[in-house]
Amino acid sequence: MIYYDRVSKIYADNSVALEDVSFSVEPGEFISIVGHSGAGKTTLIKMLLAEEVPSSGSVFFESINVHEVPNRRMGEFRRKIGTVFQDFKLLPSKTAYENIAFAMEAAGRNEEEIRSDVPHVLELVDLGDKLNNFPDELSGGEQQRVAIARAIVNQPDVIVADEPTGNLDPVNTFEIVQILKKINDLGTTIILTTHNKGVIDSLKKRVITMDRGRVIRDDREGKYIL
């Protein structure tokens, strides 16, 4: 489903972000990418979303070369991937409801679907009573749950979560991971990057370990070993 083919990213000052990275992700997998800060986890994610262009190699999503998608079709392509980030990336001038509605509007869904789906998906992440709150009126955990609701509302094939628990306390971290697991159980592929040992060890899923831009381990049922 997703295939990284010998991807390298070397910046102009010769600093290496990724070096000869190859691996593939099957549909329905829950894969965690671990490593220290600066190991290249986020760059790897940005490659999939075509936010970064590789110096060499290619990234394929369902046999489409991600970096050959023209700019005007990029929106359509990105709607196949739900994204969750460490800093939530909610639109600050929109309420929780509007943030999720925006993703649906972007996908061309009609008003009726939006009116029925948005409260439903907010209910799923346990925020049914915070529909009309702006992001700055929500706690970190609540904001991240809005972001997850936004990521899943268009029923994407993959959810990419880049350090989603990085800014959260242990209770909220546990809740977010439980929500991701639930989404995975319903058949959605999940790619999670983290450096939280507890999260990785409790998941008992595939783990890719990175160090200085290289993949150093790829374990079927891995643990956090660094």
């Binding site: 990029m74 929106g75 709607r79 972007a106 936004r150």
Partner: peptide, 16 residues
């Protein structure tokens, strides 16, 4: 600008 970037990541088209 950050909002615009987020909108792009959520999959909104350029025109929209």
């Amino acid at each position: 600008r950050e909002e615009i970037a987020v909108m792009r990541l959520v999959g909104a088209g350029q025109g929209y």
